[in-house]
Structure formats: C-alpha cells, structure tokens
C-alpha cells in the first residue's frame, strides 16, 4: 500500500518535472553541485538537477541524447539523461576535470585535467581512456576544429595553446599567449583559433594553417581599471559576424566583429561573467554570472540585456538543448 503511494508520488513528480517541451539552457552551478535548467519559453528555471561535486564544464552529445558534466571534485565526467535528469554513469576523466570538448565524431571527449597538467582523451562509448597527453600547468580551455583534425588545450600557468593532432593524439605545436589563458574557440570555418587570456586582458587570434599569431584584441571598459577587464569565456555566431566575450569581474560582455577584430560594444551583465550559450537560432545569448549567481539574457539583434534569471551559487558553464 505504502509502496503504491510512493510510486504514485514518484510518478507525479516525474510528470511534473518533465519531459520538457521547450528549448532549454543548462547551467552548471559550481558551488551548489547542481545544474539549473532554464526553460527558454518562460525564461524561468524549470528544473534543478543534483550532480557531482563542483560541476563546471557542461556539453550535450551531438544528438542531444545525453549531457556530459565535469564534476571536478568528484574526479569524474558524469553522463546524464537530459529527459529525466538521472545520472546514467561516470566516465573516467583523470583528476580534477574542469573543461572538455566533444569531438565531431560524437565519441571522443577531450578533457582538461587541471591539477595534473594532462589532457585526457576518453571514448564515451567504451568508457575507456584512449590517451593522456602531457600539456602545460593548469590546463583549462578546450576546443576542437570543425573538421575534427585539431584539438586545443590552453594552460593557465604555462600560458600556451597546445595543438593536438587528433589522428595521433600527439602535440604538434605549442604557441604562447598572454597571461592565464582561459578559453579557446575555432571560427566556424575553421581558419582561425581564438584564445582568451584572463590576466593578460587580451584575445590572441591564430591562423590555423600556420599556427602563427594573426592579431591580438584588447578591451577597455569605461570606469573599470584595465586590470579588472579580464576576458574569459566567449562564443562566436555561426554567421561569422560577432564574438561575444565575457570580461569577468568587469561585469561586461564585449561584442567583437569577427572580421575586423574591432570591439563594437560593451554590454553590462551580472557580476563576474564567466561563460555563455546561444539559443538555437542565436537570437538570444545566456551568460553565467558567477558572483551574482544569475544568468543574463541578451537579445542579440538589439545588443542589449533583456532579463536576469536567478540560478544556483556560482553558475559556471552553459549549454543549449533543443526541444526533443
């Protein structure tokens, strides 16, 4: 009898919680050990999912059937069913996984192991470690080229972008950037690699074919000391027009022209803005604001913030999930 009631309650809970019928933004809350799921239609948090300790990197499989979360202090990458929020299993990740990137083959996960100066390559199907690659001190930023041939790890204390040949899983180039690189992204056409340097206050743009530096972009926020203008996470629009750059404790997002490398605008968001994710058609951008514990929604066409959504403590990563 009691069992039946429990079951009914559980069923009700499941029905109430989902399945979702709207696009979602998933946000990892570093200091709450949870993921907040934002319903893009209503712009509210529709679910909060408990995950491992200190969740940071978050990304969906290419088919959006599972979501991967770096549970840094649990030393695991957790694989979660986005429909139910259930943790399906852990992947071996090496120690202290912070960030990762999923290869276009939808199989290999390249993981930065911050405490060990290693990049771990994991096969998400066999759940085995394929390779561990020695990189610089405190690896963090991870990227993979659109054709899947190159993976990148940036190391915060070594101040480099390490270029990995994904055929051999070996380094083929190491290029210096400014102090404390945090994030790396390839342009959608694969011709350029952009790397942000938090303490250096710059983004270095590399020509991918030659791994040589093309240009360096600086930032200046009115009324904020240059030392506190710290580029961290950034995202590029698919149309090749804009790059949105989180400037950390300056509480601003810079909008950069992808072609001319000029900063077009600065948008005020929450405190210590960290990472971000677009919705499906890139009309909206969701930024994670670590210190204020919220997400700012930016209208991309108008280039202005339109809403703030409260999430957990120290929101870190963000990832888009389309309506299933």
């Amino acid at each position: 009898m009691l069992g039946n009631i429990t079951k009914t309650v559980q069923l009700a809970a499941v029905l109430f919680a989902g399945p979702a019928f709207a696009d979602e933004i998933w946000v990892s809350n570093e200091k709450d050990d949870t993921v907040s799921v934002i319903d893009i239609e209503t712009m509210t948090v529709s679910r909060t999912i408990e995950v491992g300790e200190r969740p940071r990197g978050i990304t969906f499989s290419k088919d959006h059937k599972v979501v991967y979360v770096c549970a840094s202090d649990s030393d695991a990458v957790q694989v979660i069913d986005p429909q139910t929020g259930e943790i399906l299993h852990d992947l071996p990740s090496g120690e202290d996984p912070e960030q990762f990137v999923l290869h276009p083959d939808n199989r290999r996960l390249y993981i930065a192991n911050e405490d060990d100066a290693i990049t771990t390559v994991v096969d998400t199907q066999t759940r085995r470690v394929i390779e561990q690659i020695d990189v610089g001190v405190e690896p963090e930023g991870m990227a993979v080229s659109p054709d899947g041939k190159i993976a990148i790890t940036t190391s915060e204390t070594t101040n480099m972008a390490h270029w990995i040949d994904t055929q051999t899983e070996k380094l083929f180039a190491n290029t210096l950037v400014d102090q404390r690189p945090r994030h790396a992204e390839f342009t959608h056409d694969g011709s350029e690699l952009w790397v942000s340097a938090e303490i250096g206050g710059t983004i270095t743009v590399f020509d991918v074919a030659t791994q040589s530096e093309k240009t360096k972009i600086g930032f200046e926020v009115k009324g904020v000391h240059p030392d506190r203008v710290q580029p961290v996470g950034f995202e590029m629009t698919k149309d090749g027009r804009y790059v949105f750059v989180a400037l950390g404790p300056s509480n601003h997002i810079a909008v950069v022209d992808q072609k001319t490398y000029e900063v077009i605008d600065y948008l005020l968001v929450g405190r210590r803005v960290w990472h971000m994710a677009f919705n499906g058609d890139e009309s909206l951008l969701f930024t994670t604001n670590g210190v204020s514990g919220d997400v700012t929604v930016i209208d991309v066409a108008k280039m202005e913030p339109v809403k703030t959504i409260k999430v957990g403590r120290f929101p870190w990563g963000a990832a888009f999930r389309p309506t299933p």
Binding site: E156, T157, N159, D178, Q179, R180, E198, I199, G200, G201, D227, R228, P249
Partner: peptide, 9 residues
C-alpha cells in the same frame, strides 16, 4: 607581467 593568482597581473 606575471599571473600570480591574485586577480591582477
């Protein structure tokens, strides 16, 4: 400049 884990170069 040196990144010294104190938030500024």
């Amino acid at each position: 400049e040196l990144a010294g884990f104190k938030g500024r170069p």
